[in-house]
Design a protein around this nucleic acid. Structure first.
Length: 106
DNA sequence: AGACTGACATACC
DNA sequence: CGGTATGCCAGTC
C-alpha cells in the first residue's frame, strides 16, 4: 500500500493537506495537482480507502458541481466538518463554481 | 495476473 | 435546462 513515497494517493493526500481551512476544492482540482488531471476517479478511490484521515482533510474535497459528493464516514460527517470551519453548502458552491478556483491555486 | 470497483466529470440527448 | 450515458485513473479484490 503505497509504502513508497510518490504514489498517487500519497500525492493526493499531500494536495488535500494543502487546502487552506475554510476552503474547498474539487476532486478535479486535486487530481490535476496530483499529476493526473483525469484521475479524479483514482483520487476519490484513494481518499475512500484513505489510510490517513487525520492528516488529510478529505472533507475539504467536494464535487465540481458544488455538491459535497460523498464521504466514507457518512456525508453528514463531512458536512459537519465543513460547517465547523465556517463553511456552508452555498459557500462551498461559491468557491467551486468560481471558474479559476479549479485552475488556479488558492 | 486479470477484472471490478469507486468519495467524479464531461458530453450528449 | 435536466437527466442520462459513457469515459477515465489508480487502487483494491
Amino acid at each position: 500500500m503505497r509504502s513508497k513515497n510518490g504514489s498517487f494517493d500519497l500525492k493526493v493526500y499531500d494536495v488535500v493537506k494543502t487546502i487552506p481551512r475554510g476552503q474547498v476544492r474539487s476532486y478535479a482540482w486535486v487530481a490535476k495537482r496530483a499529476g493526473s488531471p483525469r484521475a479524479w476517479r483514482a483520487v476519490g478511490n484513494a481518499l475512500n480507502k484513505n489510510s490517513h484521515p487525520i492528516i488529510v482533510p478529505c472533507h475539504r474535497v467536494v464535487k465540481s458541481d458544488g455538491a459535497l459528493g460523498g464521504f466514507a464516514r457518512g456525508p453528514r460527517r463531512k458536512l459537519r466538518l465543513l460547517t465547523s470551519e465556517g463553511l456552508t453548502l452555498e459557500g462551498i458552491r461559491a468557491i467551486i463554481t468560481k471558474k479559476g478556483a479549479k485552475e488556479n491555486d488558492a
